[in-house]
Write a protein that binds this DNA or RNA. Structure first.
Lengths: 111, 111
DNA sequence: TTTTTAAATTACTAATTATTCATATAGTTA
DNA sequence: TAACTATATGAATAATTAGTAATTTAAAAA
């Protein structure tokens, strides 16, 4: 593979890793919570009814993908969404989903 | 779980399935090709150096997720990106990736 | 009808993933 | 110091995934 192909592949992998990190229901749930503002693990895991360990791991995946940031506050670690562009992405997906639902409805009602 | 929680979960799963379908390098490569216009499997698999069977499967995943559409043309089946909003999503991810790269560079050069 | 071509499907393997439970780390308070 | 609290990590498991090779389906051309 040529140098340009290599670079292109790296970009594809970078894009994929962001999308992959976002493409998991539990993580989307976490992001939904973090839309409201920063939260510690101790607040997140009861809110979404998941084990603490599981939430910790999902948070580290989101952080690794550059989607979240964290800061220490005493015993707790507060997580927040890194940039507003992340939220734009998610609203984009929401719109797409709505459009799909509308189309399905249109087909079923033979309009 | 209450009725509203159920509905919310369905939405999360729907969003996740779109993002998950997009979050795979080979599928992003396919979408990159389809940006140019509709293509048959026979054109796609040599262009991205993948087996025919593998490409067929990725196409069916993308179609299932509502990202692609297809039409029959003789022996061939032509695939295309269903809506322009899909491409907006991908450019959104690209921008995010660039922003991340810039930030990394900024940190490394201690600016 | 037989042969050829394009695409999908099946069976299989290796790798990755989400989840849970138990434990380790590190900061806080008594 | 000892006890407590919040988070992260490791080991184990079940489920899902991408990819390959071989086969099947379906349309077209000979």
């Amino acid at each position: 593979m040529g140098k340009l192909g290599m670079i292109n592949q790296k970009i594809l992998e970078g894009q994929a890793s962001i999308l992959k990190a976002l493409g998991q229901p539990t993580r989307l749930q976490i992001l939904d919570l973090l839309k409201e503002g920063e939260r510690c693990v101790c607040e997140i895991f009861p809110a979404i009814h998941q084990e603490q360990a599981n939430v910790s791991k999902h948070l580290s995946i989101l952080k690794q993908a550059g989607i979240l940031d964290s800061r220490k506050d005493g015993l707790r670690i507060l997580y927040r969404i890194k940039t507003p562009e992340i939220l734009n992405l998610l609203t984009g997906v929401s719109k797409l989903l709505k459009a799909q639902a509308n189309e399905q409805h249109r087909l079923m009602t033979r309009l």
